[in-house]
């Protein structure tokens, strides 16, 4: 992993600095997570009455199910869609807010607020907007002669959950892109302007490279978000339907484990999902981070 060229020398200090964080995650994450992982090799009922070692059965069951492969594909489509849409929208909005002089505060506030809508209400809101029967946007689409039925049309259902998930994350990306943009020294951009570079060229050749540390951070975080933090939206909007079209991996983990109480299978699925995402993330650190422009 990339580190600083200039470093301080100390043995104890870095460990001391890390200690609070590590202690918290040891007790409140690794301890319980370890027990959850243990369950992946067992068959158990939720109340702890029955407990049986089953080896890899929870895993083989998964890989023998055709629906699981559909779910993998849905996850790939969903995650890339969410990451692309939320990063793109966040960057465009941040770049324009950074560019203008008037009304910055107003735009900023309006983009950030949706992030503060309690998630328990957000799902309900999406239905009030997009449900084909009673959603107001669905009505508008119907008036405009556009057939809208995510209840049965798989692609529309996918588009809907991608939008809902991206919507929740746009504010987040916007905040960090804007912070990144505002940290770029004005002098650098002015120098380029004096050299005759137009606004778009300046943005592409100077601003964007300087923004790569933020972009890299957001890319990783958004993918992790799409992979792990979106089951609530799926649950509220589509329940994984129609016909399993939006049944992404983490929703299956949630539905089987939290709702369905099949702890063994849910834990096995979590491990598979974790392996996939850790691999993806390590690859990003290995290959993508080389292109990141640090100081």
């Amino acid at each position: 992993m990339i580190g600083k060229k200039v470093v301080f020398r100390s043995r104890g200090l870095p460990l001391l600095l890390l200690a609070p964080q590590l202690l918290v995650i040891l007790v409140f994450f690794f301890w319980p997570a370890g027990q959850a992982v243990f369950q992946a090799f067992h068959l158990a009922d939720p109340f702890g009455q029955h407990f049986e070692y089953v080896g890899l059965e929870n895993f083989t069951r998964l890989f023998n199910s055709p629906e699981y492969y559909d779910s993998l594909w849905a996850t790939a489509v969903f995650s890339s869609g969410v990451a692309f849409l939320s990063l793109g929208a966040g960057l465009v909005l941040a770049a324009f807010v950074d560019h203008i002089r008037r009304g910055r505060m107003v735009y900023k506030s309006l983009v950030i607020w949706p992030y503060a809508v309690a998630p328990v209400l957000a799902g309900v809101l999406w239905l009030f907007l997009f449900h084909p029967i009673y959603g107001v946007v669905a009505f508008a689409l119907e008036r405009a002669g556009i057939g809208w039925n995510p209840l049965l049309d798989s692609n529309q259902a996918m588009a809907l959950v991608v939008m809902a998930a991206a919507w929740k994350q746009v504010s987040y990306n916007f905040v960090f892109f804007l912070a990144g943009l505002q940290a770029i020294p004005r002098s650098v951009i002015e120098a380029a302007a004096i050299d005759g570079a137009g606004p778009l060229r300046r943005f592409l050749t100077i601003v964007l490279p300087l923004l790569t540390p933020t972009t890299f951070f957001l890319l990783v975080i958004n993918l992790v978000y799409a992979f792990f933090d979106t089951f609530g939206i799926i649950h509220a909007v589509t329940h994984g339907g129609p016909g399993g079209a939006t049944n992404i991996l983490v929703y299956k983990v949630f539905a089987d484990g939290f709702i369905g109480q099949d702890l063994g299978s849910s834990a096995a699925q979590s491990i598979v999902l974790m392996v996939i995402v850790v691999t993806l993330t390590v690859m990003q650190f290995r290959f993508l981070e080389r292109k990141v422009h640090y100081a």
Binding site: L152, D153, H239, P242, G243, G244, N247, D256, G260, Q261
Partner: peptide, 21 residues
Amino acid sequence: GNYVQYVAAIEDELENIWANK
């Protein structure tokens, strides 16, 4: 048992029927 999972599976397949798949 496992009501949630089996209902979800049935819902999936009913949707495939309604969508004429």
